[in-house]
Structure formats: C-alpha cells, structure tokens
Amino acid sequence: DFYKILGVPRSASIKDIKKAYRKLALQLHPDRNPDDPQAQEKFQDLGAAYEVLSDSEKRKQYD
C-alpha cells in the first residue's frame, strides 16, 4: 500500500505526501544505509509510491 509506505493517511494532501517523501528519502537512501542490502529496494518502493500519490490523476486511479 503506497500510503503505508509513505506513512500518510488516505486523506493526506499533496503537501503532506511531499513532506513525508522527503523525510523518508533521506532516511532510506542507499548511500546512507550501505550495510542494508534491501535499502535500494525500499528506496525504489518509496519513489514509486511518491510518483503515484503526488500526481492527482494517478492517485485517483490508485484509489
């Protein structure tokens, strides 16, 4: 669930989604977690979630 990945409720605004994405991107970035083999995958999932939820048309289709 993309909302769960970003840690935001379904009613979150685009601004809230962007804020959550930036915070998590810093935490999950593979360069900051060189010892975590799943860091790259988590970071890619985060990017996919943000791409869908930050675009109003894609978000409507997802919901």
Results as ranks from 00 to 15, higher is better:
2 F>Q: 05
2 F>N: 07
3 Y>V: 00
3 Y>T: 03
3 Y>R: 02
4 K>S: 11
4 K>A: 07
4 K>F: 05
5 I>F: 06
5 I>V: 10
5 I>S: 04
5 I>T: 05
5 I>K: 08
6 L>P: 02
6 L>D: 03
6 L>R: 01
6 L>W: 01
6 L>V: 04
7 G>Y: 00
8 V>Y: 00
8 V>F: 00
9 P>M: 09
10 R>Q: 10
10 R>P: 15
11 S>Q: 15
11 S>I: 04
12 A>D: 00
12 A>V: 02
14 I>Q: 08
17 I>W: 00
17 I>D: 02
18 K>T: 11
19 K>R: 15
20 A>H: 07
20 A>C: 06
20 A>M: 07
21 Y>D: 03
21 Y>P: 03
22 R>W: 12
23 K>P: 04
23 K>W: 06
24 L>S: 07
24 L>H: 08
24 L>A: 10
25 A>I: 14
26 L>F: 14
26 L>R: 12
28 L>Y: 09
28 L>R: 09
29 H>K: 09
29 H>V: 05
30 P>C: 04
30 P>W: 00
30 P>T: 04
30 P>D: 02
31 D>C: 08
31 D>G: 12
33 N>Q: 06
35 D>K: 14
36 D>G: 04
36 D>F: 04
36 D>S: 08
37 P>E: 10
38 Q>W: 09
38 Q>N: 08
38 Q>T: 09
38 Q>I: 05
38 Q>R: 14
38 Q>V: 09
39 A>M: 05
41 E>V: 10
41 E>Y: 07
42 K>D: 15
42 K>R: 11
43 F>G: 02
43 F>T: 02
43 F>D: 02
44 Q>V: 11
46 L>D: 01
47 G>L: 11
48 A>I: 15
49 A>G: 01
50 Y>C: 03
50 Y>S: 00
51 E>T: 10
52 V>E: 04
52 V>S: 05
53 L>R: 00
53 L>C: 01
53 L>F: 00
55 D>T: 09
55 D>W: 01
55 D>Q: 07
55 D>E: 04
58 K>S: 07
58 K>V: 03
58 K>N: 02
58 K>R: 14
58 K>I: 03
58 K>Y: 05
59 R>S: 01
60 K>G: 15
61 Q>T: 08
61 Q>Y: 13
62 Y>W: 01
62 Y>S: 02
63 D>G: 04
